[in-house]
Design a protein around this nucleic acid. Structure first.
Lengths: 242, 242
DNA sequence: TGTAAAGACTTTGTCAGACATAGTTTTTCC
DNA sequence: GGAAAAACTATGTCTGACAAAGTCTTTACA
């Protein structure tokens, strides 16, 4: 490394001066400049202090925030690693989900329109290649299911193929995060039965409808699938809270 | 206040001792114990230091994280205010939005089904009081609009009333965060014309349909409104990106 | 008396230095 | 050569100090 000095900013001796906004920006600048990828280690805090010209606590506040957003992971002794992409073009928003009686159902209620819309868009605008992939994933899912194995990874891949076909990565991200929140809530209080098992047989006709371009049929099937999950979710909630 | 001392935790003299997880928990405990609601002010940092028994930087890291998640808002001189509910049962989820060519359109594409579904649910399950509120907000919006004033705050309140009527705060949160992301992207590159101005006249019939319980009509109008915004968004994107 | 400017106070923002703790790497010893 | 011990690294926390931007109170003036 040819001796840093990329941010010629140590103008202020002590006290404060710059807007706090600059810390994330400087950090992202360093990451881009250094070409750091997911999995790479960031420089240690004290080096960041030296190179970016901010105080350690200030930098730590940003790093801690990033950790809570899932951008980096931090460990004593080890260091700070990038675990998600971040760049000047990345925008991160955080949600808080209240975990109470019907929060399980609520997550599914929000997921419902997103899944259905993603199916509609995918049916309309998937490329032939994407339809092939969806078909293959559906076949894989049915095979695993009928073999009596754990079908959840295959289910995940199937739905991901649909989300990809929308051409809008936001769908995938949102639904993914909702599911993550769902499982965070779900795993804790209850044992973990295979929620949604009965919906698997409906996945084959769903795939067929998408491939055939039958948007309404696809949307209807997607709705049925998620409604079944909703119903199961509701039953579990009621058993537990009431 | 009868002399705090609720958290008898100053066992460690210096250095560290407890898991960092304890800071959010202690903070939430204090909020619940004090009965703080959205809009209320938290005690100043130095008082939190005294009452919770953690160092100031540690507490600040949590507060900063909460700020980035939209749980509190912080201002010099003023203080820290609660701007969203938080409790022991709150779960936090982060989303990444990559800001590129058509990210504007993509945010609206995701928002679309959420808005429509929230309108459907609200139409089905709003209480009479909530319908009254929606009606009032619509009246307010139309008045402001016809007076030629800035209708955006009123528009915001109107849509919030709908989201409230769903009984599912997640809708409100998701849509809110999507809009926030949208504006973060939007404000930067372009000047800020009044996007969605032409949709305002449609809000009155939308309110009427919701109040009358006509779900399909309400959903149709909601779809029209957001499609108009989508079209405008697309035009702006195209003008700008080529 | 009412209002606006001036000052005092409050509260967050930042920095600096110190030590604790938990991983990681190197060294040592059998 | 392998396992235990020591040295090292990097994050976690605490304390103290000052800066800056609000907020509130007081004062001065019309």
């Amino acid at each position: 490394m040819p001796e840093n000095a990329q941010q010629p900013k140590p103008e202020a001796a002590s006290g404060s001066a710059r807007e706090p906004r600059d810390v994330p920006r400087a950090l992202i600048g360093l990451i881009e400049q250094e070409g750091l990828k997911v999995g790479d280690r960031l420089p240690p805090e004290l080096e960041l202090v030296r190179r970016l010209g901010f105080g350690r606590s200030t930098i730590r506040e940003t790093l801690k925030t990033w950790e809570s957003m899932g951008v980096v992971s931090r460990n004593k002794g080890a260091g700070t690693r990038l675990i998600a992409e971040i760049s000047t073009n990345t925008l991160r928003v955080a949600l808080t989900i209240k975990h109470e009686a019907d929060s399980l159902l609520r997550t599914q209620q929000v997921r419902r329109p997103l899944e259905i819309e993603s199916v509609r868009i995918a049916t309309r605008s998937a490329t032939p290649e994407q339809r092939l992939i969806i078909n293959a994933r559906a076949a894989e899912l049915m095979a695993v299911y009928e073999a009596g194995e754990d079908w959840r990874p295959a289910d995940h891949r199937f739905h991901n193929a649909i989300h990809d076909a929308t051409g809008n990565p936001l769908f995938s991200q949102f639904i993914e995060q909702i599911q993550k929140a769902f499982h965070d809530i779900y795993d804790a209080p209850f044992g973990k039965p295979h929620l949604g098992q009965d919906t698997i047989p409906l996945h084959r006709p769903l795939a067929d409808a998408i491939i055939a371009g039958d948007e309404d049929k696809a949307a209807e099937l997607a709705g049925m699938i998620i409604d079944m999950v909703c119903a199961e979710t509701q039953k579990i909630s009621e058993e537990h809270d009431g």
